[in-house]
Simulated scan of single mutants.
Amino acid sequence: MAKRKRLTPLETGPQSSEPAAALETKSMFTASRRAAPIADVAAGAAASAALEELSERWEAARREGKLVLELPLEQIEMTHLVRDRIAEDPEEAQALRDSLRARGQQTPIEVVALPGRAAYGLLSGWRRCRALAALRDETGEARFGTVQALLRRPEDGHAAYVAMIEENEIRANLSHYERARIVVKAAERGVFASEKSALATLFASVPRARRSKINSFIAIVKSLDRALRFPEALSERAGLELAQQLRDRPGLAREIAQALKATPPADAAAEREILTCCMAAKPVSEPAPIQSQTPEVEPKPAPETLAQWPGLTLRRRGSRLEIDGPGADAELGADLAAWLSARFGG
């Protein structure tokens, strides 16, 4: 068999001491890729725009009250508004504390930023703040030292009070006395020009009949707010009767205040008994007027009661019809005039 001969490369010059160059490959002729400058600029601009848009949306959500904030309880000013709720039911308060302890806060409160201060005025959520403060003092746990809140921006004082009223009308069963009291206090603070304006604005969404009853309780608030100890326990029927007697007997408010001061009631039932006794007592008769020498006038016929509703009585006196009571307001007068006009074609 013939032998194979090994071939060696031809040397054209003296052997170089430098290592031979590496073999050429396809990659040697491929230029290294890099992003075009315009693409870098576009990507950076898009990222910056997206971040700016996100920041604007975040701030807008915060301003519009759509962002839940976690605030220290110390920064919440509980007395920013005159509260509509006078007393807190112990059983309801305990149930709320038990819920917060087991499940945490489920519904944010509503606050408004106070200008120039690191504090927030409370609009709604008074009971939740009190419950969290009680749990913090009881347990010492940090989770009860903060409250979740929505930052509101009411246009004026009217809107702030309306926010509180609407929240409590949904969540809490306020008494007529408590509703009337917030009307009186809001008018006293100058938030509204008058009690009538406050009543119409704060309770614009409630039925007219309920507004009429709240209006009747305003007289009780103005006459006995400092004397009564359990006014929120005053029932609707008892309150309307008391309001009527306060109008008919100018000295009744003073008699009730003196009786409550002489025998301070221990509970709502005792206070109700004192009120009943004062209303049942006959008013002190005034001295008989001096009879004049003029001929006696024929006495007017006794009125006949035709119908009676809470806060409203319809009587007939001879050929006259009389409507009396706290429900006989301007709205009822307008409705009655429209009905008579339609009936008699006037």
Rank of each mutant, 00 (worst) to 15 (best):
341 S>I: 12
118 A>P: 01
250 P>G: 04
323 I>D: 01
2 A>Y: 08
246 L>P: 03
155 E>A: 15
116 G>F: 13
82 V>R: 02
88 E>L: 05
160 A>T: 05
231 P>L: 11
94 Q>L: 10
84 D>C: 04
298 E>Q: 05
117 R>G: 06
183 V>Y: 07
125 G>Y: 07
277 C>M: 07
33 R>W: 14
84 D>E: 09
32 S>L: 12
322 E>Y: 04
205 S>N: 13
162 V>N: 05
87 A>N: 03
320 R>I: 07
104 G>V: 07
88 E>T: 05
304 E>K: 02
273 E>P: 00
244 Q>K: 08
18 E>V: 06
74 E>K: 12
320 R>P: 02
96 L>G: 02
295 P>Q: 11
230 F>I: 03
75 Q>K: 15
42 A>L: 14
164 M>R: 06
248 D>F: 13
80 H>W: 12
164 M>D: 11
30 T>R: 09
33 R>V: 11
31 A>Q: 13
345 G>W: 09
91 E>F: 06
346 G>Y: 13
261 K>R: 14
136 R>C: 01
214 I>T: 10
346 G>W: 11
331 E>L: 05
270 A>E: 15
66 K>R: 15
40 D>I: 10
228 L>Y: 02
85 R>V: 04
16 S>H: 04
43 A>M: 11
227 A>H: 12
248 D>A: 14
301 P>A: 11
159 A>P: 00
267 D>V: 11
134 A>R: 01
248 D>Y: 12
257 A>S: 14
266 A>D: 13
129 C>D: 03
133 A>M: 10
305 T>D: 00
29 F>I: 06
84 D>I: 02
287 P>V: 06
13 G>D: 12
127 R>N: 01
289 P>N: 05
186 A>V: 10
96 L>R: 11
81 L>R: 04
286 E>F: 06
176 H>M: 05
157 G>S: 08
104 G>N: 08
61 A>G: 04
297 V>T: 04
186 A>Y: 09
88 E>C: 04
264 P>Q: 12
346 G>V: 14
31 A>L: 12
20 A>M: 05
266 A>R: 15
151 L>E: 14
343 R>H: 14
43 A>V: 14
98 D>M: 10
9 P>T: 10
211 R>I: 14
325 G>P: 00
212 S>H: 00
309 W>P: 02
305 T>I: 09
165 I>A: 03
322 E>T: 03
196 K>I: 05
87 A>K: 00
166 E>A: 12
144 F>V: 03
111 V>D: 15
164 M>G: 00
48 S>M: 11
237 R>C: 10
191 V>H: 10
337 A>V: 13
191 V>P: 06
78 M>C: 04
86 I>E: 09
67 L>H: 15
91 E>K: 11
200 A>K: 15
120 Y>K: 00
264 P>V: 11
240 L>H: 08
314 L>E: 14
84 D>F: 00
341 S>R: 14
293 Q>F: 10
46 A>L: 15
110 E>L: 15
140 G>D: 02
51 L>W: 03
277 C>R: 08
197 S>Q: 12
90 P>S: 11
296 E>C: 01
282 K>L: 12
130 R>C: 01
209 A>I: 08
308 Q>N: 13
174 L>C: 01
129 C>L: 01
72 P>H: 13
98 D>K: 06
174 L>G: 07
327 G>W: 04
2 A>S: 14
135 L>M: 02
131 A>N: 02
161 Y>W: 08
177 Y>H: 12
188 E>H: 09
269 A>E: 15
